[in-house]
Amino acid sequence: MERVMCDLTIDYFNGQLTTEEQEAFERHLESCADCQQELAEWQALSEDLPYVSELVEPPVGMKERVLGSILGEDSPAQPVVSPTPVIPMESKKPRKRSASKWLPLVAAALVLSLVGNAYLGWMVQDQQQTLVTQSETVDQLVALVNLQPLEGDSTGTASIVRNGDTIQVVVQASSLPELSNEEVYQVWLIDEEGPDRAGTFTSTGTDGAVVYTLPAGQDFSWDQIAVSHEPNKDSETPLGQVLMASAISAPETE
């Protein structure tokens, strides 16, 4: 009987046993030093064999499909910050950074934004047109991105506009969830140290927009933008659900 089991090592290694056989073999394996040793031997002897494979280029878009699918299915489990309302800071304390909470979210948003959101294309074009036709002075559109929905189905765009030394961040959003009491939508600019506040807004119907002007002389040094649903306009770090996010950056000026 034991002999027969010991003959199954290769078929076990190659996954050729039925579920019942496999379970029986694993029970046997626990107490059979010979089989344990033989299995380890097959493992060691074949360790280099994967490298026989010729290196081939993965199909175009595989990363977006694979990670998009894995993280997309998982999106309900995205870390959304604690629902407990926090009392607004009274004085200007040093900003509390929460980069560790943000990075996974931002990475997910990045992957989603790579996947693309074609149906917003018209909106981007539309906005570009508007900005171009309205710029009597020297407004310069330096970046324009689609915001990727993370929670709910809000959509929107974010753009960076430069006029001389003044840099403005313009966010437009639609299909926003309803606000109650003092709730607002908060725009965040994010770098590897965490989120910075960049304007709040409310909605008319389900649409909303905000223009945030950076302090004079400050460069646009962030690489992500996000919009969250906050209990009031005083959140120093995101407390509510993050509705949308995207990668965004301003190219260096000459």
Binding site: S53, E54, L55, L71, A77, P79, P104, V106, A108
Partner: peptide
């Protein structure tokens, strides 16, 4: 559940895992 770590690890091993899988499956 750090998705950034997943992406980094993916980037590191994508080609290797794909190449080996392609050798095994013989189909893209």
């Amino acid at each position: 559940k750090d998705s950034e770590a997943l992406e980094l690890l993916y980037d590191k091993y994508e080609r290797l895992v794909f190449s080996f899988a392609y050798r095994m499956m013989q189909d893209q």
